[in-house]
Structure formats: C-alpha cells, structure tokens
Design a protein around this nucleic acid. Structure first.
Lengths: 194, 194
DNA sequence: CGTCTATTTGAATGTACTCAAAAGCGGTGG
DNA sequence: CCACCGCTTTTGAGTACATTCAAATAGACG
C-alpha cells in the first residue's frame, strides 16, 4: 500500500474504525493524480464526477460571478476533501472552479464508486456524515464572522487559524477568501507591520 | 401514530426508504414539545442535549457577540432540523440561542438516542449525511452572497427564497440574518416601495 | 534582462453604520 | 373604548469601513 493510502486512512481512522476489508475496498476505489501548480481539476460549467481528497499540496475552490469576480470558498490542504458537492450530487454543471495552488497530490473518488461504497459499507456513511457535520459548524462560524467582524479582524483570525497558508498563497486569493479587495488587504497589512 | 410523526416521516422518506420497523424505532426516540412565541429552547452557555426538528411554527437560532449584538444564523420552519450541532457533538457550552418566533411544535431527538439510532440502523447515517451535505451547499452559497452581493440584493434574494417568512418575522431579525442593521434594511425597503 | 503578474499607494467615492429622535403598532388596564 | 406603555420601524445627519480607479513598485519566471 502506498504513502497516499496511508495518509487518507490516517484521517479516516480519526473518525471511524473500519475493518481491514473495508479499508482495502475503500482504497481500491480511489484514483490518484498529481497536479502541477496552477492546474485546474474542476471547471465552472462542467459536471463534477469526483469527490477529491488532498494528499499533499494545496487546492483552492472559487466561484466566479457574472462580472468575472472570483470569490474563494475554500483552501484545501493535506487531509481535506474538496470539490463541488452540489454538482457532484445533482450532476448539474458546477458553479465552482478548483485548481492547484502548489504542486499537489490528490485521490479522486468517483461519484458512482462512492455510492457503491456507501451501499456496501454504511460505516462510510458515518464517516461522511461526520465530515459534513464538522464542515457545517465551520461554515456557520464563517458566516457569523463575515457579518459581524471587520476585515482587519478577519485577516488576523485567518493568520492564526491557517498560519502555514500565508506562506505560499498569493495575497489576492487570501483577500478573496476574506471577502475584500487585494488593495484593502494591502492597507491592512501596512497598518500591522508599521 | 400522531400528526407529528407523519410530518417528520414525510420529510425523511424524501431522502431514504426506511422499513416500518426502522420508522417505528426512530419515532419512539422523539420527544414532542410545544413552544409559545418568544420561548427559548436552547440558550448560550448551556450544553445542547437535543437535536430539534420543527413540525410547525418557526424557530430562530442566533449568536450573540461580546458587545451583545445578535446575529441570526437560521430560521427553521416545518421540516427543518435546528439547534447547535457543535455543542450537540462535543457537549461544550453552546454559543447559540434558539427560540420560537411563533407558537411552534417540535420533536426533540436526544444526543444519546441519536447515537443509539445511528448504531442500530445505519440508514439514518445516510439520512443525516444527506441533510448535512445539502445544508453545506446552502451555507457555501450564503458565504458567497455575504461577500459578493450588496445588502439590497441579499434582501431581494431573501424575499424570493423565503416569501412566507417576511409575513411574520420581525424585520429586525431579517436584518440580522442578512448581516445589516434594522435602520439600513428600512432604507432599502423605502427605496423599493417608492 | 525583459515581461508579466502581484502588491502597494493614494485620491475620490460609495455602501452601510452609529446615534438620536420621531412615528407606528399592539396590547393592556382603567 | 381610549390612553398609555413598550417595542419595532422609520428618518436624518454625520461618520467609518471598504471599494474603485489609476499608477507606481516589487517579484517571479523564462
């Protein structure tokens, strides 16, 4: 079994305790892939066929509105799942784009394989239930923050929460994630450094 | 079987097809309750012991920050689940308050009963997995909207999406849900009516 | 080294907030 | 049935946070 598989099993075992057979089957469904920095894995307008697990590197998912402005929804580093859940579920064209911010390794779980998995071994229903539940809690907090905290405070919280990301994520994407313009983020940073 | 039970089964059957025995067991775990308008069901600082399903009426969940400002997270009408998932999972004190906006009927699913249910009938893992997955999609869209759309447009989207809510929810709570002040919502409304 | 993109800076502007006060509305008691 | 009280909603003036636009500077990559 490869390093890839060990990585994802490590994350899964934090939440559920599958049998060796369940683990083996799960791993057998995954398609590994490597992405170069800047490479796209899912594009707006296309249907999403895979749920994506990040083994190494970093991916970002963003929404592009009619005016062409990008809004970053998520940065996904090792151990995270990413992609467009809505498109994956409904097989409608995706409203998001996902691309690699750094050279990355991913594992792709195709929708139909995922359904097979869940039908055969319901313990994985529990796994994804817990993942989504935790993610929901995080999303709720982000909504609160968006509405009740200034951009400056949001940036400082971001730095505390994801210290490693600031190292290599271009500031304009961090600005987008925080819901502000790159210019304003620059002004916030000047203030702090001064 | 009471009206209560039929209501919740109706919603569950949209997502999964439980056996009669599974349905019977599920229903047996629920504690019905009635709430008067304004009544609290979960309070900040207290641990959440129940997952709450709304059968009729309307509940709202909000976060109160250090300055005492309320931020409405969710309105829950018939067919919705509500409460503080984080507190329910971790048994840490809740950061949210949940109260009835109108006379309401709810079904409470205690945490320990929910765990029993999920251990015994994994089909309910699927049910909650789907619920959380759908909720996540909605939350992502709300984050996008918070950051990339003006308050005026958010209000109009809200009107389209929840036309029935505006009938009886005080405007100040709608303002809070939209992340704006009641004063500013009033100004938006004046503009439209004029 | 030159080119392309990311980041910074500054001035003018706009969106939404704060504070204070008036108006509207619903219930309750005399 | 009306008057009063408390709470919600509206209005207005002044202000603050964040944006837009334009341009300069800095970095990264071939």
């Amino acid at each position: 079994m490869e390093a890839h598989s060990q990585e994802i099993l490590f994350h899964i075992r934090k939440n559920i305790k599958p049998t060796p057979e369940e683990e083996r089957f799960f791993i057998s469904l995954l398609n590994p892939a490597k992405l170069k920095q800047g490479e796209f894995i899912e594009k707006t307008g296309e249907v999403t066929y895979n749920f994506i697990h990040v083994t190494s590197g970093c991916l970002m998912t963003y929404y592009t509105d009619k005016e062409g402005n990008d809004q970053v929804i998520q940065f996904a580093t090792a151990g995270w799942w990413t992609g467009d859940l809505h498109s994956l579920t409904t097989q409608q064209p995706s409203i998001y784009t996902t691309r690699a911010l750094a050279d990355s390794e991913i594992l792709q779980l195709p929708k139909v394989r995922m359904e097979e998995l869940l039908d055969r071994y319901p313990i994985f229903e529990r796994y994804f239930r817990i993942m989504f539940q935790n993610s929901l809690v995080t999303h709720q907090k982000r909504i609160i923050e968006a509405f009740s905290v200034t951009a400056e405070a949001r940036y400082h919280n971001f730095q505390k929460r994801y210290p490693h990301l600031e190292q290599f994520v271009p500031l304009k994407y961090i600005a987008s994630y925080l819901g502000i313009t790159p210019e304003f983020l620059s002004k916030i940073r000047r203030k702090k450094t001064a």
